[in-house]
Amino acid sequence: MKKLLSYLTMTALALFLMAPFVWMIFVSLQPSKAPIPSLGQLVPEKPAWSNYRLVLVEQPDLPVLRFFFNSAFVTCSVVIGQLLISSLAAYGFARMKFAGRDLIFYVFLGSLMFSGPVTQLPVYLLVKSLGWLDTYAALIVPGVSSAFSVFLLRQAFQSIPGELDEAARLDGAGDFRIYWKVVMPLSGAALATCSAFSFFAVWTDFFWPLLSTNSTTMRTLEVGLSVFKSSYGTTNWPLEMAATVLVMIPLLVAFLFSQRYFTKGIMIGSIK
């Protein structure tokens, strides 16, 4: 009885959370420029799959495939950069002793919590003075290291027993070799978690790409979608919903693949 009640509650909640998505897909399949149907007529007689083709390839002023490429290229670059730079730092903080180590680590943590509201303007001015505005450098370089990844990987590295280092050291390995040959290979799950986190954070970032790019060819999917909304919003609902679905699909696919690491990482991050 209690079991049944739990399942009923969980199903109701799932319906509540998924309903907007399902509804969105049905609206996106209405004929282009049709009004939003009532719930009774939600399932279209002839699904207008052509909406998706319209959005993807027949918008000369909105190159969706280009947006997609930009998002993918920027996200992959940032994720790889973060994995390398942040894991190096995490090894330093987790495994080595040097003066001021803990203090510097606390500066990393503090910036993670509190730098958000005040850094956007100066970073914009900095990127502008470097002549990077509207280039990939502007989208990638400010993100290639993250205090959050440093924090997450430090936790993971600390949980690897030090005896392994000692064994490698006896074989004549230096710290860099231990980092690359011992600690990194043993941290696959943590590195995957880190990648999953930064992947979603960068792919769905809206604010920074909105500020740092202005030509259509440099826009990411997120910004592209908001541009799409300002040019088609309230005039062509099915098309706008189709665009929204298209933006969601890669994220959903990525989530289903990385889901395991993703939820794990939140837990690592929360445990002090």
Binding site: L13, A14, L17, M18, P20, F21, M24, F200, W203, T204, F206, L221, E222, V223, L225, S226, K229, G233, E240, M241, T244, V247, M248, L251, L252, A254, F255, L256, Q259, F262, T263
Partner: peptide, 17 residues
């Protein structure tokens, strides 16, 4: 997994939706 999906979706897409 289902309950997590809204959180990984794009903020712009969710807002438009």
């Amino acid at each position: 997994t289902l309950y997590y999906i809204p959180a990984i979706s794009s903020g712009v897409a969710i807002s438009i939706l």
